[in-house]
């Protein structure tokens, strides 16, 4: 039985889809069979980040309505044979999802994959609730910035009150990724430190990802940044994926990155 991971953030635009794509590819590169599902109905984007937008024939709604089988709808990644992708439907009607259908889909995926990663839509409405309902683990993505952190706390609150595992008396493991850290700004006291964010949200740290121009470049090409060996964000996602696979990888102090090195990677300073 695989582990179901919901990737959530509350606020949009913090790098949730990028995180989902890179973590999914990262665990696949560690030899785990992984399915990554775009739950953002009507605003499909994960297909672009993975470079699979031209291969989508059937989406998750086709599978739920039994117009296609799961095997027909799952798209094999070009980057790793362990990675499969299921697209979101581009319909405007968000009511296509319901709890019974979502549970059936997630249960089926759990049977054949080690990891099932669900990329949540932004916000805290029904699409979000469907994503977290049957998750075993939640990965919360934030930027070191007040609105992102506040919205993440609201999302975590709703997760704790709506999750099936919590209802059954179990616990949902919550892990934090702090994305788009600018080490220079942290050092000069202009950006929140990781310890402060962890203290405010009262949650475990999964990894820290520095701001990196390479992320946009990677999305332009439809090749997740984890494939770029020279990318600091890509390497951060490698460490995060290894941690998820149970490896002990020490937390790199990216906030102390040396300034000269930093100039090469941080777009806004170059």
């Amino acid at each position: 039985m695989g582990t179901v991971i919901a990737v959530i953030s509350g606020k949009g635009g913090v790098g949730k889809t990028t995180a989902s794509a890179n973590i999914a590819l990262g665990v696949a590169q560690n030899g785990k069979k992984c399915a990554v599902v775009d739950f953002d109905i009507g605003q499909r984007n994960l297909d672009m980040i993975l470079g699979l937008e031209n291969r989508v024939v059937y989406d998750m709604v086709h599978v739920m309505d039994e117009d296609a089988t799961l095997n027909q709808a799952l798209i094999k990644s070009k980057a790793d044979e362990n990675l499969f992708f299921l697209a979101a439907s581009q319909t405007k009607d968000k009511s296509v999802l319901n709890e019974t259908k979502v549970k059936k889909l997630v249960d089926n995926l759990k049977e054949s994959f080690d990891f099932v990663i669900l990329d949540s839509p932004a916000g805290i409405e029904s699409g979000f609730e469907h994503t977290i309902k049957f998750a075993d683990v939640a990965i919360v993505v934030v930027n070191p910035e007040v609105s992102s952190i506040r919205d993440a706390d609201r999302a975590i609150g709703i997760l704790d009150s709506k999750s099936q595992r919590v209802k059954d008396g179990n616990f949902v493991d919550k892990l934090l990724i702090i994305n788009r850290i600018v080490p220079d700004m942290v050092q000069s006291g202009e950006m929140l430190k990781s310890e402060d964010i962890l203290e405010i949200l009262d949650i475990k740290l999964l990894g820290k990802v520095p701001e990196d121009k390479g992320v946009v470049d990677a999305s332009n090409q439809g090749k997740p940044v984890i494939l770029d060996k020279n990318s600091v964000a890509g390497n951060a996602y490698k460490r995060i994926s290894a941690r998820l696979c149970g490896e002990k990888v020490s937390m790199e102090d990216i906030e102390a990155l040396d300034r000269g090195f930093l100039k090469k990677i941080v777009g806004i300073f170059t």
Partner: peptide, 26 residues
């Protein structure tokens, strides 16, 4: 940078209060 306002600590204080109030309402 020492002369500049350390806005990160201000962010922490404001967030702590805002989140405390959000949680109590929720």
């Amino acid at each position: 940078f020492l002369n500049k306002k350390r806005s990160a600590s201000l962010a922490k204080d404001r967030l702590t209060i805002a989140i405390m109030s959000d949680r109590s309402n929720l």
